[in-house]
Design a protein around this nucleic acid. Structure first.
Length: 304
DNA sequence: CTCAGTCAAGGGAAC
DNA sequence: GTTCCCTTGACTGAG
């Protein structure tokens, strides 16, 4: 089981997602920004190794305007060695990384331009994983998309588009159940049609479900991952921020809830991405919780 | 220097 | 029909 957090490290004084505005675009600026972003990413990964965090979601803006037509800078060749060095480090330290393209990537949009831009963004993020020399266990995580007033048609469009995706994208793509529109059941329907793995989000499942108990939901999602091709199932973990709008992520890890959740795994191996506001601080506490539980288990074994 | 407004991109729900 | 939400930092330009 690997534990991780997304995109930003709040303890370090650098960002791996520094960007700039379209109006101030220049090739030189792309070059200096990417160089800085890659250097910061390396520092974040080293921090993670030092703290036992072996799962990390890389932010989408490593390369500013990475899939935008304005960016004609040959970053793939210019930074080939930089990406490869990062990938070498990730593999050497037995880490796992992923990307989560943001809400503008909508594969089931009825608008062909949006779909085309979405595919371009997925190709850009997949290309970074290729440059790092990482296999198809490094995933690109997206949601099914919009509803457009017709669930069946929306799912059918996703499936049709998925079948047209380039192999470099398709081998890495996974879908996540969301908190308002597409539940685990919807994801399972897509999985049954095309075999795509489901990245399970426990908090979204709490917000939107059809009565499946947590342990059952985990089992269903886990069965969609092909071990050799996809690796250990990935999941997002969060909990409700008390007193806030339903679906608002917790500001910090509530350890009792996390312990309770781990109990639903029943030995299932998962890599857990903590979608908690305070990032690595909570991730480190999650590691502590795991260690305590392992200690308790070891003592119980010794006592027998 | 400071600070408020803004930044490529979508979609849904509240009002 | 319009505004606000997600989610986030950091860039930008006005003062």
């Amino acid at each position: 089981m690997k534990i991780g957090y997304p995109c930003v490290n709040e303890s370090l004084d650098c960002s791996s997602g520094a960007t700039f505005r379209l109006a101030s675009y220049s090739a030189e600026r792309v070059e200096t920004t990417v160089a800085g972003n890659l250097a910061c990413l390396q520092r974040i990964l080293e921090y993670n190794v030092a703290h036992g965090l072996r799962f990390f979601r890389i932010g989408s803006s490593i390369v500013p305007f990475g899939s935008h037509p304005i960016n004609t800078f040959a970053w793939r060749t210019r930074f080939a060695a930089g990406f490869q060095a990062l990938g070498d480090y990730i593999r050497a330290e037995n880490m796992r990384v992923s990307f989560h393209p943001d809400q503008f990537v909508v594969l089931n949009s009825p608008n062909a331009d949006i779909v085309q831009r979405s595919i371009a963004e997925l190709e850009y993020q997949g290309a970074m994983l290729d440059l790092m020399g990482l296999d198809s266990t490094a995933k690109l995580q997206i949601h099914i998309g919009g509803l457009y007033g017709d669930r069946d048609a929306a799912l059918a469009r996703f499936i049709a588009t998925y079948r047209t995706l380039p192999e470099a994208v398709r081998r890495r793509l996974v879908i996540e159940n969301d908190d308002r529109l597409f539940s685990l059941q919807d994801c399972l329907r897509v999985h049954e049609a095309v075999g795509i793995p489901i990245l399970f989000d426990n908090f979204h499942h709490e917000c939107l479900h059809h009565g499946e108990p947590m342990a059952e939901a985990l089992r269903l999602a886990a069965a969609t991952w092909h071990p050799a091709r996809d690796g250990v199932m990935m999941m997002d973990y969060s909990s409700q921020q008390p007193g806030e709008r339903k679906g608002k992520h917790a500001a910090t890890l509530e350890e009792e809830l996390f312990r309770g959740f781990l109990g639903h795994l029943h030995g299932l191996d998962v890599d857990i991405m903590l979608e908690i506001k305070d990032k690595e601080a909570s991730a480190c506490r999650a590691i502590s919780v795991l260690h305590e539980l392992q200690l308790v288990a070891a003592e119980a074994t010794a006592a027998r």
